[in-house]
């Protein structure tokens, strides 16, 4: 089985080789290295690196964030010129909604980020399903929170999983790593999926078949 972690956002590009080594050790077949659109020079460096990494596939992607819907659409159009793999930084309801309606978007990242609700409703789940946009479970969100806040984050993610399953939207589980120490074994990420209400098959698909189909 091939495993993919499609959301690694390095704080320090010097760590790139170590991240690649760690990904190989943890059994990944491919990793998505994501850069913000503003950091196109870093994105180009990753793209250069991606050409010469042997058996580990590196997928350079662009993260798009915006304050409003029009700005988001414009940013997606610009990002699309550089990469087919576009992640939208979720959190705002209208951004989550606009991303779910746009088939150019691959993943809505952390839709529940800094919210008091899950950030996804039945409308977004339905659009995401129709447009092939995946909803992300970001492990870094769980790792970085504690106690009460973590319980809220888990609860919101559980609701997102439930909605995605009901409306047939795809769910991907990513580490959201900022460096090599935030990376986790794919089977451990699948375990997070299971405690959020997925069955074994779905949770394993969320770290293997679904991300693989996104970056095919």
């Amino acid at each position: 089985m091939e495993f993919y972690d499609l959301n690694i956002q390095l704080e320090d590009l010097e760590e790139l080789d170590e991240v690649i080594e760690m990904a190989k050790r943890l059994g990944y077949s491919g990793i998505g290295l994501i850069e913000k659109y503003a950091n196109l020079d870093r994105f180009n460096k990753i793209r250069e690196k991606a050409k010469k990494t042997g058996d580990l596939r590196i997928i350079p992607g662009i993260e798009v964030g915006a304050e409003g819907v029009r700005e988001l659409k414009r940013a997606i159009s610009k990002a699309k010129k550089h990469s087919n793999f576009i992640i939208v930084s979720g959190g705002e309801y209208k951004i989550n909604r606009a991303a779910s309606e746009d088939s150019r978007v691959s993943i809505i990242s952390h839709p529940e980020y800094k919210r008091s609700d899950s950030g996804v409703d039945h409308v977004i789940a339905k659009f995401a399903s129709d447009n092939g946009v995946a909803i992300e479970i970001n492990f870094h969100e769980i790792l970085e929170t504690f106690r009460k806040i973590r319980s809220f984050v888990l609860s919101h993610m559980r609701l997102n999983v439930e909605l995605a399953q009901k409306y047939g939207a795809r769910v991907v589980i990513n580490s959201g790593a900022r460096g090599k120490w935030d990376m986790r074994d794919p089977r451990e990420l699948a375990a997070i999926g299971q405690i959020l209400g997925m069955n074994l098959e779905d949770s394993m698909n969320s770290v293997s078949e679904i991300p693989k189909s996104i970056v095919r």
Binding site: I142, D182, R184, E188, I192, Q194, I195
Partner: peptide, 12 residues
């Protein structure tokens, strides 16, 4: 088992 896996993963 899955909770134990998750708890192990959450140690950073």
């Amino acid at each position: 088992v899955e909770y134990v896996r998750a708890a192990l993963a959450l140690i950073d």
